[in-house]
Design a protein around this nucleic acid. Structure first.
Lengths: 336, 336
DNA sequence: TCGGGTGATGTAACTAGTTACAGACCAAGT
DNA sequence: ACTTGGTCTGTAACTAGTTACATCACCCGA
């Protein structure tokens, strides 16, 4: 068999040769077609079509110094809140002509640093982080490369990177106040793993000094519907005088809701259940879920916008705290 | 004020100058450090640290001809099934040292083609598509650039790109057969927008010739919990002799479940409810949801693997159909 | 002392684009 | 007739890396 002719991709020079023009002219046809005479342009375009030529992204990037890629480091895509945020980020970045590379970290700081390095190797021009707990390796990487980085899902005006987040502390407070206003005093607090998650820690911090004789008992469980459901037995055993359950995330609240129904406990007559986040289905469940709305989509859009402006115009964004909103639905009611 | 010295990024030549070696040596320190003498290497490393040097991804890519980036075109991240699949894709691609750029299409073929172009401009080496409905523009783009492309969420061995999917037709059939086996004859089928979604069309196609006196009535609604809930009034009005509700997605099944509970209809005593997908919460809800499991994570992993091998070793994958599994839970029961 | 092998390093060409500058050409103005 | 200006195109340098090949020092054995 004859040795296969290496069928590598056509480049600018190939097109120039076929069209019988210089590389500069081909480049002009691609970038500023109006300055090229029509018949020349048509000849070049014919050559481009003939060869199936597509300019190399890398070669363009090397000249412009721009890749137009933004990297996002998020704990996981399995959780609605990150998926929602990311969806908003992606579509807003697209408005600025920027693409989004996603890397998941499983809430593991070392993995995050490793993936951040990969993102920078890919050439991202900006980085979106979640929360404020990161490894020194990541910090020094960001410092060395001077890549613009912003933090989402958390607000702290003094943090080393601009934070575009919501008020986790205030949201938890809002939820507890609501239960308190309804007369509830014996409250079970169900929350995800605090050790690895600064958003959860911040929410818990809001609950440390309950007023008016409110007593809080804490239950840490997996961050999922199953986690919320699994912990209910423990809650019901430990707290016979239970007024309300405050779940620091909606997914766990759904788990709690289901598990309570399964045990014949009526919500909200026997016990009120409160979530935190306002998932799309919170308005639909039966009973519908009282919760505090975290503006995930809005945050995603704003984060994307802010980073885009930083990358494009070197305009570093100010930290922003988006407001949370108490959403009262059927799952909470006044204590009888 | 003195004109600011342009503080541009340090490059290989800068490092070479500071370390008093040639560019080749610096390159060797970066890529094959063992061939460089220790003291030279240390000098270079010191220079790298001093300048905060980071090699340019674009320049590397231009030489290797590789970007190590894969692009995924998915309808939306708001839907769990895509978020789950994407999470699996991302983590599996990472095993191969590949990064993932995400672009959402909102199930719009023109938008998909536009975003595909952007992905190729970014330099993706491979493309992951969802379903088999795409614009001609996308097809010709893929043909011109000869970029490896695979399809997920759909199986069709004869399709122009390899499909790594599950059997939508078989899954729907499995669900209907289950209801039939339980003695149900009057069945409401709730499904998402068929016009724009080939997965849904394929599921519907499985239901065209029901046997044994089974009567199906169709209700198209939004692909969401709210959509599933909103259509229930219509279902209950139109079908007074209702045995079962078959929802062609779990999210809609949850909506149906909630709406039925809200109206005092007992599931499964009064009516059986069947989902399709097996979301993580399907096992937790009350009643827990009978459904057909679509192996979203497995599919994501396999798709990532297959595309990675195609990109790395030029080994085009074979179409693969992953099995769906009937999951019988509490929401379906024998007709009384 | 010479040839050969090895190891470390440098030179320069190469990747695929963009672009500053130069030059050719043609028409209009002086 | 000669300059001027504008349009179009080409040459070559430039971006930031990698790498084939050349070079040189050094050591060993003949």
């Amino acid at each position: 068999m004859a040795p296969h002719k290496e069928k590598k991709r056509a480049n600018l020079r190939d097109v120039a040769r076929i069209a019988n023009v210089s590389v500069a002219t081909v480049s002009r046809v691609l970038n500023t077609p109006k300055v090229v005479q029509q018949d020349t342009r048509e000849r070049v375009e014919a050559a481009i079509t003939e060869l199936g030529f597509h300019p190399s992204a890398a070669a363009r990037a090397i000249n412009s110094g721009r890749t137009r890629i933004i990297g996002a480091l998020i704990p996981t895509l399995e959780s609605d809140i990150f998926a929602l945020t990311l969806d908003a980020i992606e579509s807003r970045l697209d408005d600025f002509g920027l693409s989004l590379v996603v890397a998941t970290t499983d809430e593991d700081a070392d993995k995050e640093a490793r993936k951040a390095k990969e993102l920078l190797d890919v050439g991202v021009e900006g980085l979106i982080l979640s929360g404020i707990s990161h490894s020194d390796a990541l910090h020094s990487l960001i410092e060395r490369t001077r890549v613009p980085a912003i933090v989402t899902s958390y607000y702290d005006a003094t943090f080393r990177y601009p934070t575009i987040g919501y008020d986790n502390h205030g949201a938890a407070r809002l939820a507890l106040d609501h239960l308190q206003d309804l007369g509830h005093r014996q409250v079970a607090v169900i929350h995800g793993p605090a050790a690895i998650n600064d958003r959860i820690r911040e929410r818990l911090r809001a609950l440390i000094d309950p007023q008016d004789g409110v007593s809080l008992k804490y239950y840490e469980t997996e961050f999922s519907v199953a986690g919320g459901a699994a912990v209910i037995d423990r809650v019901l055993t430990k707290q016979t005088q239970l007024d309300a359950i405050l779940c620091l995330s909606d997914v766990q609240a759904f788990g709690a809701l289901f598990a309570l129904q399964r045990r014949g406990v009526n919500v909200p007559q026997d016990v009120s259940v409160m979530g935190l986040q306002d998932l799309p289905s919170a308005a639909q469940s039966y009973p519908s879920l009282s919760t505090v709305r975290l503006p995930a989509r809005r945050m995603g859009r704003l984060a994307a916008e802010s980073l885009a402006k930083w990358v494009e115009d070197d305009h570093k964004p100010d930290p922003t705290c988006l407001p949370c909103e108490l959403i009262v639905r059927e799952s909470t009611t006044r204590k009888h």
